[in-house]
């Protein structure tokens, strides 16, 4: 391969990368551009703290209103619930994988758990509707749809990420401390509880926060079981998330109307929350790494 071919190859890679970046940057720009006009109709404080959502003027008293508060609260509540459930289960599995399982078991179990990440969210929603909602209905929840149902579904979807990142962390901590613990004759589960777990908690916390970011954007599964009512989220009551508002209402929003721009604003808010979570964790990790943070990097 001559010099020309080499520079051609480098050029192609660079151009493709530049194009990809421009397209991605344009997507971000476009979303911001389409979101901002809504501020002419509703202030930022109304958007963030108002709970009245009346995107089309039906001539009722009060006219249009664009309060996203309940939706934001819905997204946060569902994600939070999902993380709590998923962490309890996932941490257990991660402990098993890092402590009790051997190399071969891990090589088999990881791909199986990864299957959970591959299942389309609409299938989760479907299973939720046909399996979970009847149970909630029997338990006395009206129609069965509720925030808890969404949280449980979402927690299953988060498991692969939490299990793999937590077990990675714990495996490293184990390799670091276990030999000396075992040399002192301490049983491995006791060492797990008293050394490995405390040494990994910071990274586990990071993984949990990153998982919140992933959970916030989930649309289909949550939308199918949460009931979609503009209410402040209550664990056994209905709620609605930012993502489901967009999915449900975009089809009817008139292009260019305040409603349309408000939905973009909802998307932008979601995006910003997730972005700050991801960036925050990244910077925090770097910061701790630079300070040579304890042996659980």
């Amino acid at each position: 391969m001559g010099k020309k071919l080499n520079s051609a190859f480098l050029l192609i890679i660079t151009v493709l990368t530049a194009m990809a970046l421009l397209v991605l940057a344009f997507v971000i720009f476009f979303i911001v551009k389409e979101a901002l006009p809504v501020l002419e109709t509703a202030g930022l404080s109304e958007l963030l703290t108002g709970s009245r959502w009346m995107p089309v003027d039906y001539g009722t008293s009060g006219g249009m209103a664009f309060g996203l508060f309940n939706f934001i609260a819905g997204s946060v509540a569902v994600s939070f619930l999902a993380i709590v459930i998923s962490s309890v289960v996932g941490l257990g599995a991660a402990m098993y994988l890092s402590c009790a399982a051997g190399e071969r078991t891990r090589a088999f179990v990881y791909p199986v758990i990864d299957l959970l990440a591959g299942i389309p969210s609409v299938v989760y929603g479907f299973v939720g509707i046909v399996v979970m909602l009847p149970l909630f209905l029997k338990a006395g929840v009206h129609t069965g749809s509720c925030v808890l149902a969404a949280g449980i579904l979402l927690s299953a979807m988060l498991l692969p990420f939490l299990v793999s990142s937590c077990s990675d962390t714990m495996l490293r901590a184990k390799e670091c401390y276990m030999p000396s613990a075992e040399a002192m004759g301490i049983s491995k589960w006791y060492a797990m509880a008293t050394i490995v777990l405390p040494a990994s908690w910071r990274n586990i916390l990071f993984s949990m926060i990153l998982a919140v970011g992933r959970a916030m954007g989930e649309t289909m599964a949550v939308m199918m079981v949460i009931g979609n009512a503009n209410l402040f989220p209550n664990i056994l009551g209905k709620g609605e998330t930012i993502a489901s508002v967009i999915a449900l209402e975009m089809g009817t929003a008139v292009v260019g109307s305040a409603h349309y721009h408000a939905l973009y604003m909802a998307g932008l808010i979601l995006m910003i929350i997730v972005f700050f979570i991801n960036m925050g964790i990244m910077l925090l990790r770097k910061h701790l790494l630079n300070r040579g943070g304890a042996g659980n990097a």
């Binding site: 309890v88 289960v89 257990g92 402990m95 758990i113």
Partner: peptide
Amino acid sequence: MLKARLTKMWAYAGMGLVLGIVIFIFIYI
């Protein structure tokens, strides 16, 4: 030693539940 036993139970229960969920969803569908 209670700590050790609880941790062990937590680990086995968690692993069992995760695998249970995977298997349940696939078998059910």
